[in-house]
Write a protein that binds this DNA or RNA. Structure first.
Lengths: 375, 375
DNA sequence: CTGAAAGCGCTAACAC
DNA sequence: GTGTTAGCGCTTTCAG
C-alpha cells in the first residue's frame, strides 16, 4: 500500500501530540511507573494514531539491556540441535526476549567470531554448545568473562561456566542394562572422535557399564568418526565385514544409528534378531525409521528452561558455576529386543524407562544429579 | 578466571590511552575513513590492551542500521524450514549480519507479535514464511510498509511484497510427468488444508497436469489435512481402506509422504510396485527412508541468497515487488518406478531431473521464470 | 588527516 | 504524577 517508507515516529512526536513530556510517554507506554488514567489514555491514543512502534535499540542503549540472547550451535541442521534451538526460542519468547541464532559449522574460528559479535551486540546472555572440547576453550572463556554464558549439552575443558545437559553416564547405564536384559552379551560402540565432553562421557559410560554387566567389547568395536548418517553406515559396514558381529551396536547419536540400521539392511543383517541397535537423542526420525529406533531421550524443554534460568541467575554469580545434569530416559522401540518384563507392553507403543535415583557414589551412575552451587 | 564481570570498555578509554580523540578511534577501528599509519597502530594497540569489544547497540542507534535480519517461520522444527533457516543464516553470516530467529508456531497472533518486535528492534529486513494465507496478511502488510520484507516459499494474499520461492506448478509437472512415464495412470493427492499460497498452487498444478496427462483422479483422492507424518499416515490409510487404490500418491511435502510410506508398509501395500509415492522438499530423511523417496528438491541456498539480496534491493524500491520463482528439480529414488529411459541409471544413485524452459504461456508451466520488476 | 561537538531515541534521576 | 535534563556509546558533520 504505502509505497514510500516513512520516517519512524519517535516518542517525542507522541509526546507532542498527547500534550505531555517524553518522560511521561515513556512511563505510560512501558508501564514502569504510575501514570494517571487520563494521561495514559491520551498517550495510548496518540501512539496509536501516529503508528508509534518504539525503538528497542535506543531503549537498549539507555537501559544497557537488550532482552536478546545469543545461541551458538555446531550445526543448526543436526536435528538434536534444531530441537534445542526450538526449545530455547520458546523459552525466550515466554520472557519477551529474542534469539540470535548462530551456526558455528563445526568451526572453532567461526564460533569465536560469533561469540565476539554477540558480545558486541550486548546480548544479555549466551547459550552455546561448543564445537570442540579444547579448541573452543579460549573463546568461550573470554566471552564468559564478560557475559553470562551457559554451555548446553557439551562443555569445553578448563572453563568454569554454567552447564546444563543430560547425565551421559546414566544414559549409558540405561542403554546397556536394557540391552543386557534383552539378552545382549557383547556390544560395539560407534561415535564421533572424542573432541568434546559428552562424546567422551558417553564412551566412558559405555566402557564402564559394559564391563560391570559382563558384556564383551573389543578395541576394534569402538569406532570413532563423526556424528553423521554416513559415518554410521561406514562404521557398521566395517563391523559387518569384520570377524564376528557383536550382539548390539550402541551409537552415540541417532544419526549414526540411522546409518548403522541402513548398513544392516543393505547387508542382510536383521535388526534386532542378529544385532540390536540403539541411538541417542530421540530425534523425530528415530520413531519413523524401520525398525524404529530404541534411543536415549533428553528432556530438551527442561534443558532449555534451565539454561535460560541460569542466564539470569548468573547475573549475581560468584566464582562457582552450576552444573546441572538432568535425567535421561530410554525410549524402547523395535531396534532392540524387548526385555522379558516389558515384552507384553504392546506392539508399536514406545516403552519409556526413566533413570532412577543414584545407585552409587560415582557421579554419573545416578541420573538427575544436580550439582548446582547456586539457586 | 576473572570472577567479577568488569565494566565494558568504551571508545573513550581507548582514545585516552592512544592519546587521540574518540572520533579518530572510531575511524581507525571501523576503517571508514583514512587514518595515518602511526595512529592506527597506536589505536589498535590501545584497543587490544584494554580488551575493547565495541558496542553495536550504540553504533546502531547512531547509524540507524543494525546489520540484523529477522526471520519468521511457521515451525523451526519442520526440516524444510530448518534448512531454509540454515541457508539464510549462512548467507547473512557472509555479509557480517546476524539473524533473529522467530518461530510463529503456526499461530497468526504469535507471528504478528514477532513482526512487531522485530520492527521495534530496527532490523534491517525481515524474511518470513507466513503461517496463513489470509490471516497473516494484516501483520505482513503493516510490517512491509515500514521495513524491507520478503516472503519465502509461501506468500499471503493481497500484499505486494517481494517473494522468492519455487515454481510449484513446474514441480507438479515434473512429478506427474515422471509418474506418467513410470506407468501411473491415476493419482491421489495428500496435502495440507489450503491455508497458504504454495499449498494452493501445488494442488492446482496437480489437477492441471493430471488432467493434461490423462491421469485419473477422484474427489475422494484429494485429502487435505496438515503437513505432518501423522496426517500422511492417516490419509494414506483412508486411501487404502477405500475402494480401489490409485497408481500413485502425490504428497505435498515429505513429512506427509513419510507417513504415507509407513501406512503402506503397515498395510502390506508395496511401494512402488502397488503404488508409487512422491514427496516434496527433499528433506534429509527422504534419502534415508525405505524405500527412499522420490521428491521435489528446492534450491534452498539460492532461495536464501535471493531473499537476502532482495532485502537490500528493496531499500530503493518503488511500488512494484519482485516475484522470483526458481526452478525445482526432481530427485528420483526408489519410491517410484524408474522411467524406461532412466532405468539404466544405476541402483541406488539418485537421478535428478531439472525443470526446463517454459513450454507454454501459463506462468507456472515453465520453471525458473523470474518475473522480477527490479534488478 | 584529526579534533570538537552534536545528537541518534530513549529512560532514569532529580526536581517540583 | 509529571516535567526537565543528562547521558547511554557511538558516528558524523563541520572546522581546522
Amino acid at each position: 500500500m504505502e509505497g514510500t517508507r516513512v520516517h519512524r515516529v519517535t516518542i517525542a512526536q507522541v509526546a507532542a501530540r498527547a500534550g505531555v513530556s517524553t518522560a511521561t510517554v515513556s512511563r505510560a507506554l512501558s508501564g514502569n511507573r504510575p501514570v494517571s488514567a487520563e494521561i495514559r489514555r491520551r498517550v495510548d491514543a496518540a501512539a496509536r494514531e501516529l503508528g508509534y512502534a518504539g525503538n528497542t535499540i535506543a531503549s537498549a542503549l539507555r537501559r544497557s539491556r537488550t532482552d536478546t540472547v545469543g545461541m551458538v550451535v555446531p550445526s543448526i541442521r543436526n536435528p538434536f540441535f534444531t530441537s534445542l534451538v526450538e526449545s530455547v526460542e520458546h523459552a525466550l519468547h515466554d520472557q519477551g526476549r529474542q534469539l540470535f541464532l548462530c551456526d558455528s559449522r563445526q568451526d572453532v574460528a567461526v564460533e569465536a567470531g560469533h561469540l565476539r559479535s554477540l558480545a558486541a551486540r550486548q546480548v544479555d546472555g549466551i547459550i552455546i554448545s561448543p564445537c570442540h572440547g579444547s579448541g573452543s576453550t579460549p573463546a568461550v572463556e573470554a566471552t564468559a568473562a564478560a557475559i553470562p554464558l551457559v554451555q548446553l549439552d557439551r562443555h569445553v575443558a578448563g572453563t568454569n561456566t554454567d552447564w546444563v545437559g543430560v547425565d551421559d553416564g546414566a544414559s549409558m547405564r540405561l542403554v546397556l542394562e536394557h540391552l543386557h536384559a534383552a539378552g545382549a552379551r557383547s556390544a560395539a560402540f560407534i561415535s564421533s572422535t572424542l573432541t568434546n565432553s559428552s562424546t567422551e562421557l558417553r564412551l566412558a559410560g559405555f566402557r564402564r557399564h559394559a564391563e560391570r554387566l559382563g558384556m564383551g567389547t573389543r578395541d576394534d568395536w569402538i569406532l570413532l568418526g563423526e556424528y553423521s548418517v554416513e559415518w554410521g553406515r561406514r562404521a557398521a559396514e566395517t563391523l559387518i565385514a569384520g570377524s564376528g558381529l557383536p550382539d548390539a551396536i550402541v551409537c552415540a547419536d541417532d544419526l549414526i544409528a540411522l546409518g548403522a540400521l541402513r548398513a544392516c539392511r543393505d547387508h542382510g543383517v536383521a535388526v534386532p534378531a542378529d544385532v540390536q541397535v540403539t541411538g541417542y537423542d530421540d530425534i523425530d526420525f528415530a520413531a519413523l525409521c524401520e525398525p524404529a529406533l530404541t534411543t536415549v531421550s533428553q528432556p530438551r524443554d527442561r534443558i532449555a528452561a534451565e539454561a535460560v534460568r541460569l542466564l539470569d541467575a548468573a547475573a549475581g554469580a560468584g566464582a562457582t558455576a552450576a552444573h546441572i545434569a538432568l535425567a535421561p530416559s530410554l525410549v524402547v522401540r523395535q531396534s532392540t529386543a524387548p526385555a522379558p518384563a516389558t515384552a507384553t507392553a504392546g506392539a508399536r507403543l514406545d516403552v519409556r524407562v526413566r533413570a532412577g535415583q543414584p545407585r552409587s557414589s560415582r557421579s554419573d551412575e545416578g541420573a538427575h544429579q544436580e550439582s548446582s552451587s547456586r539457586p
